[in-house]
Amino acid sequence: MFTGIISGVGTVAEIQPIGDGADMRLRIAVPQDKAEWAGMPGVILGASIACSGCCLTVVEMDGASFSVEVSAETLSKTTLGDWAVGQGINLERALKLGDELGGHIVSGHVDGLGAVIAATTENGSTRWSFQVPAALSRFIASKGSVAVNGVSLTVNEVRGDVFGVNIIPHTAEETTFGTLAVGDAVNLEIDMLARYVARLTERDL
């Protein structure tokens, strides 16, 4: 489990096709200027790390990078299939009991892909608008939570299959929002509570 509070931006250092090219092995370089990542203290083989919202398992590591293996299913349902060497990746270590829950409960299981349709300066922040698949739009509510590329965000407004959020400069600097552009695809995870409430309302009680 994660909180959607990004602790550093890593970089795709190497991409290696595996499984006859259907699957992928990624090596992610970690930010050495962040105490939580420099030398990767406490990270062990088998650990879960959220990479731009996708919960991935560490299969190899050294003090400067870690490797993960990604199935064809994950590649087809997330932005990972379009990642390139040199690309920035939002990183978050798994939540430990006793940690501060600064965002919201995030599982690292991507529900679908959204698309950036607008980014507009609004006072001291930037208003971002995302279009989401129709099947996910009903789970996104004004003032509710959503994870975009692993970042926990509060929804400002919802108009059909479009929702908006405001990103302050600090968030842009500490995540890949600083390099995101109109037209880019993003990984979306809906709020877990919204998922279960919707499921309950579908059943005959």
Rank of each mutant, 00 (worst) to 15 (best):
V148F: 14
A115Q: 15
A134F: 12
A134Y: 09
A141E: 00
A119P: 00
A118K: 07
A118L: 02
N123E: 15
A141C: 07
G124C: 02
V148W: 15
P133Q: 13
S145F: 13
G112L: 11
A118I: 00
S145K: 07
L136E: 03
E122A: 06
S137Y: 13
A118F: 01
G114P: 01
L113N: 02
V132G: 06
N123C: 06
G124V: 00
I117F: 11
T120C: 03
W128G: 03
I140E: 04
S152C: 04
S152W: 12
L153F: 01
G124M: 06
A147G: 02
I140Q: 06
L153E: 06
A147P: 02
G124A: 07
F130T: 01
E122N: 07
L136M: 14
A134T: 12
K143E: 11
S152A: 04
T126C: 11
A118P: 00
G144R: 03
S152V: 01
T126Q: 15
G112W: 13
A147R: 12
A118G: 01
L153A: 02
G124N: 12
S125T: 05
I117Y: 13
L136W: 09
T121Q: 15
A119D: 07
S137T: 05
V116E: 15
W128N: 09
S129D: 10
V151G: 02
L153I: 00
R127W: 14
S142A: 15
A141H: 02
A147F: 12
Q131T: 02
T120Q: 14
V151T: 10
G114Y: 12
F139M: 09
K143S: 14
S152H: 09
S142Y: 06
G144A: 05
G144S: 04
G124W: 03
A115D: 07
A119W: 00
A135R: 14
G144P: 00
V116D: 12
S137A: 15
